[in-house]
Simulated assay, not measured.
Amino acid sequence: MKRHNPDSFLIKATLLLISTLTVMAGAAIAPSLPAMEKHFADVENAEYLVKLALTIPALFIALFSFIVGMSINRIGRKRLLLFSTLLFACAGSAGFILNSLWAIILSRALLGMSAAGTMTGVMTIISDYYPGQKRASFMGLQAAAMGLGGMVFAAVGGISADFNWRFPFLIYILAFFVFILTAIALYEPEEDKHENNKKLAFVLPKESIGIIYGLGLIYMVAYYLIFVQLPFYLLEISNASAAQSGIALAVSTLAGAIASSQYGAIKKRLDFSIIIIIAFALTAVGQFIMGFGDSYRVELCGLIIAGVGFGLVMPNFSNWLATIVPNHFRGRVLGGLTTFLFLGQFISPIISQPIVNVVGFSNTYSLSAILLLQLAITLLVVKISTAFIAEKI
């Protein structure tokens, strides 16, 4: 049916815009953190609480994504997205008028709940709309859109934060427009009766799913150091303004967007595990450069390389899971992925801040790079060993 054509421009544009909302949750206000901390300096533990305002959406995304994934078949994809985008707009923009740091943190928690719905819903509906290689290509395009969105949100957030730390919260009003597009453009996918008949006999590959979840968690703990600590690190080494921090984050996300846009072509040539290894290694190299860098320009070089790794790994995780499970299980499995990715985001500052306090920013980035590189080498050794044993058998 033509009116249910997932290849239409309006449907694709709507799905991509929904995807950018999750990036907006953090990227929009990241450059304003130093100014927020200064504004709430009289609040006890303001240093930690301001960073919590950035990362608490990730905790609530983690807490609610699996629940959303388990219930998405009953709620419906489109209904979930409509409710989530509306709540996202209201909760996200609330920080512009709230005068209490704790009230802002509460609004950010609601933002996380809504983002759990948007991310789980959009990943599931993309997996339903597009099969096989089409899915790989579109997930690459989705990650590219998220990267471009992150670039725009970080840059606009940084520039506006130089005027007032509250202005970046106005960016979330964009979600009202996305809500309208969702109502007009999207449709509820039809249930695949043949696949539905097989679902009771299907056994989830729990070991593979667990490995992907674990890798996603570790990667996000390491990678999110960039968003949480970079504005403070750049302020320390180059007295960078909020706008400069926003531009730095924007450059990194642009590099990721370009890499993600090529994911479909890369996936044709490489398997999932090799892409993971390459992505982890690239992010490690980028963070090594950041750790040893002593200027704004050197940090940009590291951010670009790390961004390329991120651009490859994100569509790879979701596409890998969507490929190994049937339609009926995608919502809960992709919801689980969202849980682990954003749990990693939330605990990143909890783990990194004590380390930063002891060894400093540069050594923290270097330690993160060592962790990612060790994982990449371990995965490569396992990959080679498994292939060798299979060949002998």
Rank of each mutant, 00 (worst) to 15 (best):
1 M>N: 10
3 R>E: 14
3 R>A: 08
7 D>Q: 05
11 I>F: 00
13 A>K: 05
15 L>Y: 09
17 L>Y: 00
31 P>K: 00
31 P>D: 01
34 P>A: 00
50 V>H: 03
51 K>R: 15
53 A>N: 12
54 L>F: 01
58 A>K: 02
67 I>M: 06
73 N>Y: 11
73 N>T: 15
76 G>Y: 02
77 R>M: 07
92 G>Q: 03
93 S>E: 08
93 S>M: 12
94 A>F: 01
95 G>K: 05
100 S>R: 00
106 L>P: 04
110 L>V: 12
111 L>P: 05
113 M>C: 10
114 S>D: 06
116 A>M: 07
120 T>D: 08
125 I>W: 10
130 Y>E: 04
131 P>Q: 15
132 G>M: 04
134 K>R: 13
136 A>Q: 10
147 G>P: 00
151 M>D: 13
153 F>Q: 03
158 G>N: 06
158 G>C: 03
159 I>P: 06
160 S>E: 14
170 L>I: 11
176 F>R: 09
176 F>I: 11
179 F>K: 03
179 F>T: 14
180 I>T: 14
180 I>W: 10
181 L>D: 10
182 T>R: 01
183 A>R: 11
186 L>M: 05
187 Y>R: 13
187 Y>F: 13
191 E>Y: 01
193 K>N: 09
194 H>P: 03
197 N>L: 15
200 L>V: 12
204 L>S: 06
205 P>M: 09
206 K>G: 12
207 E>A: 14
214 G>A: 12
215 L>E: 01
218 I>N: 08
219 Y>T: 05
224 Y>V: 12
228 V>T: 15
233 Y>Q: 06
236 E>W: 08
254 L>H: 06
255 A>W: 14
260 S>H: 01
261 S>Y: 09
262 Q>K: 06
264 G>P: 00
268 K>R: 11
270 L>F: 15
279 A>K: 06
287 Q>W: 15
288 F>M: 08
288 F>R: 02
293 G>L: 04
296 Y>L: 10
296 Y>G: 04
296 Y>K: 05
298 V>G: 04
301 C>N: 08
301 C>S: 13
302 G>D: 08
311 G>R: 07
314 M>D: 11
319 N>P: 03
323 T>I: 07
331 G>R: 02
340 F>K: 01
341 L>E: 14
341 L>K: 10
343 L>C: 07
345 Q>H: 07
351 I>P: 02
353 Q>W: 01
354 P>K: 05
363 N>V: 05
365 Y>D: 07
369 A>Q: 05
375 L>A: 08
377 I>F: 09
379 L>I: 11
381 V>P: 01
384 I>P: 00
388 F>N: 14
388 F>R: 15
392 K>N: 04
